[in-house]
Design a protein around this nucleic acid. Structure first.
Lengths: 211, 211
DNA sequence: CCTGTTTGCGACCGAGCGGTTTCTATCTGG
DNA sequence: CCAGATAGAAACCGCTCGGTCGCAAACAGG
């Protein structure tokens, strides 16, 4: 019993064929949304990019919306995995290190795609409906990941949620702005400012707890 | 000499005809972008909304891009005018009042349209190029308007710019998020938090100046 | 009032869109 | 090895898009 010659591709199961196809499509969708935006991510360019035909695409996704929903779930997943990984890499991250991780995450394609989907959701009720559950889960997992940062234990769920959301908005806006008119000096100062503020908040909590 | 009967519209100059036409088109464009987003603001719906024909539109704007650029200039103008007005209304605004003004501004149609245009700019190089000058001017005027807030005099141009930009990003993000999944409690807490932080910054500046 | 110019209209155009259909290639279970 | 099922390709469809064009109405100025 020998393996088939390497020139002839080995037999793949239907499930394998299916999964590679879906992965290629989602990868291409992520790349295209990041480069061209949600509205310009047409099935034509996604198919071209992924090397999958239109027919092949519709075999696995019933509509463009379905593809976008699946893509949202995937970028959300990757975002969380990467964020936890980066935070775990530096065992005891300082505040500014953790903030830098967060900022870098928000500059990555995954988060840019998520942002594009959120902005599109505002004016596309179908997309908004379909993404609502994914979104809730995603936001919850973000806050959960934020628990890995020292000092986070001082804040209740609601406060931490609000803090993290505020930072997300700031870094999202910065990520967009820097692709229009970059300002690295201000970016660095902003990071330091936020770090100082976070330390201020932590100090205040500690003092309050002491009394 | 009598005025013509009111049933017969009075004679208008060519310039008047032109200006009312342009105003109607830009007003409609603002409304449509705010409701449907930049990508879905097609000339068809803009014409329908404004009551102007396609031919009429192209008499005054050579392309959709030109219309969008003109719209950007107009929303920028209105945003600044309104912001200055609101700040002037309360003579000596407290920090939290000023922040509330800013937040309300960012929830208004004008700023939503500006935001849509900025997000679209990221992936549309033509739009980005055409809006770069308008954008620079706009950002500068925002920072200038921020000088009306007591405490602003403590900060240099660059620092104030960075602070205001950070707040803009936060409020922009919040304005989008609240149309997807509103959270009024967190919004209020966020405003208070930011006010506290601003006070913290001002205090630190004052102490630093004292030494 | 009358001629030339500007303004406004709506039918029309090619291109690209999301989605369907038809047909072939590949895998599956017996 | 073979019949039925799944995967993948490509031509095709109706529709909407931004933009053009020829014509009629409204204004301008002598």
């Amino acid at each position: 019993m020998v393996e088939p010659a390497p020139t002839v591709p080995r037999r793949r199961t239907q499930q394998e064929r299916r999964e590679t196809m879906i992965n290629r499509l989602i990868d291409a969708t992520i790349a295209v949304i990041a480069e061209a935006g949600y509205a310009n991510a047409s099935l034509g360019v996604i198919c071209e990019r992924s090397g999958v035909s239109r027919g092949g695409l519709f075999r696995h996704f019933d509509s463009r919306l379905d593809l976008m929903v699946a893509t949202a779930a995937e970028v959300g997943r990757r975002h969380i995995v990467a964020a936890r990984q980066r935070l775990a890499d530096l065992r005891e991250p300082t505040l500014i290190e953790a903030l830098r991780v967060m900022r870098n995450r928000h500059r990555d394609v995954e988060n840019v795609v998520w942002f594009e989907l959120m902005v599109a959701s505002r004016t596309d009720s179908d997309l908004r409906t379909r993404l609502s559950e994914t979104g809730r889960q995603f936001f919850a997992e973000i806050v959960e990941a934020a628990r890995l940062v020292p000092g986070a234990e001082l804040f209740g769920e609601e406060d931490l949620d609000m803090l993290v959301t505020s930072l997300e908005h700031m870094f999202d806006g910065e990520a967009i702005r820097r692709e229009i008119s970059p300002d690295p000096v201000a970016e660095e100062r902003r990071l330091e400012l936020v770090a100082e503020f976070a330390e201020f908040l932590i100090m205040r909590r500690l003092n309050a707890a002491q009394e």
